[in-house]
Design a protein around this nucleic acid. Structure first.
Lengths: 340, 340
DNA sequence: TTGTATGCGTTATCAA
DNA sequence: TTGATAACGCATACAA
């Protein structure tokens, strides 16, 4: 039922070598035989077996993507970018949903190893010694997406989260706010959550505003639920806030929803700025002003770098993508204070 | 650098056949040799080459998932379910992002064919003759997810969208509404968009409410932008609506946002019910009442069916998953009218 | 321009 | 309990 190169060869009265050459566009055959073989291929509906090819070429045209969470559109937008360029170069993506679990991650790494993928994109999570040395032993390229490593020389693409946090906070300050709260992710998440928080602090300090621990709250994660929790404690601890910087859009929406519960209007009574500029930012009420990460582009870039490294066998330089404030309606400008 | 079964055999002073047997837990070796071989494997960090295995076993432990769109959390939630059970049985998922394009879909189908995936899950899109006969020729199992086919005997898992539309509309009616609008997807999308619309009409008719074409609007797609468009035309054409059934959550959010623009309160002035119960439903303001599809479970179920079919070589029966109204705050009950 | 033969890393069949 | 060896489907060096 499923034809092999032999069937084609037999039917075309040539050797399998000739068929193979034609298939791979090497030279060494006449126009005539090429045409005839191509016709037979068409007739039979023959497609080369990528498995056999992979075995001999040591190339599977498949990349693995490790992503901790699939909830929310965050990963989706990255994936979409990755998938697009991967498809352009004729490769496929295997998604691995690690759920932040080390054991699951290692399990996936092994599967990807056994399947001989050509490269690995590692999203968001910290690159542990265990992961790194395993991938190292696979001797295939890897790139970090929305993450980075101090210890290991692995190229990454991300935005500067510290700068992002700074920009967001400064934006609030520029709009006349001085009493600014922070809701971020986990305090253990040194790569992202605390980076954004550091940016927040730096912006305050640079504008002579005292950093007040009471105005800052960390949570388990960047999710809606966390935003609710965070905002609630903020409302208790620091009821006179006029603005809050939420370190993710979901956190921001959670914050907004409890603001409503406390009968505060957004942005008139309290301004909120988010981070990520996910699709849901524009769909929220009020539409959410947010620090945009070009997620789709970042995914695309990461994939490009991966293929670049496959070609060059060298380590590609990392890439800091620009962030940008997307102004919508969730931040109120205090008394025409706005500078500039 | 990368070890093969030969290396293991040599180092353990046995034949590759023995190593293979141990690896595959066949019998035909002593406890002693097993232990020793296992130790060597450990030492070498050897992992069998899945490509070579796939070549001889005709099984790749990989399934392909074709999904038209990656925007929004819809696909993500399905994917998450698929990925989980796929991983449980030791397989991997290749995601293919077709963008609703026939040519891209065929291209992917070919890639998946060449890579000899063990099965295919086909999300949302219509199963054309071309797709079907191609997959048929691959002679691997396929299941339709959030879709179905009249023409071909392909098992599917989905909710009954007509019933879902009926339930949503009836819910509005039960809450005292009689002037109910509809915003749906494309009129060409016979599988989903018009099914939900049909359910809407049926519910009206069953409750002696005239179906008014002016109250119904179809759009390009199920997205937020479409919801905005749809609601705008609805506001013009039928300003006295007290409720609208939006055939997706994004449509609903779009509708709500223009309601606000028209200075209508939701739900006091106009009630909105959505469909899908995506993550963003609970994050919206007001929290969106929505018809829930158990997306995660549906993905999981589809994957289960796929593996079932791989075992049994038979066609598994289709599966209609239950839908359910998740009550939140976007529907207002008119004058304690509510029945029951 | 074309064909033969070998090998890629496995599993499976047969002998030993 | 073991070990040669032939497949699996293809690419390629070498011969013709």
């Amino acid at each position: 039922m499923k034809h092999t190169i032999k069937d084609v060869a037999k039917r075309a009265n040539v050797s399998i070598a000739t068929v193979s050459r034609i298939l791979n566009e090497k030279d060494g055959y006449s126009e005539d035989t090429k045409e005839m073989v191509l016709r037979v291929i068409e007739e039979l509906g023959y497609h080369p077996n990528a498995i056999a090819r992979g075995l001999i070429n040591n190339k599977t045209h498949t990349v693995g993507v490790l992503v901790p969470s699939l909830t929310g559109t965050f990963a989706t937008e990255l994936l979409s970018g990755i998938e697009q360029v991967t498809h352009e170069v004729g490769s496929n993506v295997i998604v691995c949903y690690t759920e932040f679990q080390g054991v699951k991650t290692m399990k996936y790494l092994q599967m990807l190893n056994e399947k001989r993928v050509d490269g690995i994109i590692f999203i968001s999570a910290e690159l542990t010694e265990e992961y790194y040395s395993y991938v190292e032993s696979m001797s295939i390229p890897m790139v970090l997406l929305c993450s980075e490593s101090d210890k290991y020389q692995v190229p990454y693409v991300r935005v500067n989260d510290r700068a992002g946090g700074y920009t967001a906070t400064k934006y609030l300050i520029d709009n006349g706010h001085r009493n600014i709260g922070l809701i971020s992710g986990s305090e253990d998440d040194v790569l992202t959550s605390v980076q954004r928080a550091e940016g927040y602090k730096a912006a305050l300090i640079d504008h002579n505003i005292a950093v007040n621990e009471n105005n800052m709250v960390f949570n388990d994660d960047f999710l809606f639920e966390d935003g609710i929790q965070g905002m609630k404690t903020l409302m208790e601890r620091a009821p006179d806030l006029t603005a809050v910087f939420a370190a993710s859009d979901e956190l921001a929406l959670g914050a907004i929803s409890v603001a409503y519960q406390y009968n505060k209007r957004v942005p008139e009574d309290i301004s909120v700025i988010g981070y990520d500029n996910l699709r849901l930012a524009e769909m929220s009420h009020p539409p959410l002003t947010s620090v945009s990460q070009p997620l789709n582009d970042m995914g695309a870039k990461a994939a490009q770098m991966l293929f670049e490294m496959q070609e060059s066998k060298m380590i590609t330089p990392s890439c800091i993508m620009p962030h940008q404030i997307i102004e919508r309606k969730s931040v109120h400008s205090l008394k025409d204070f706005k500078k500039k």
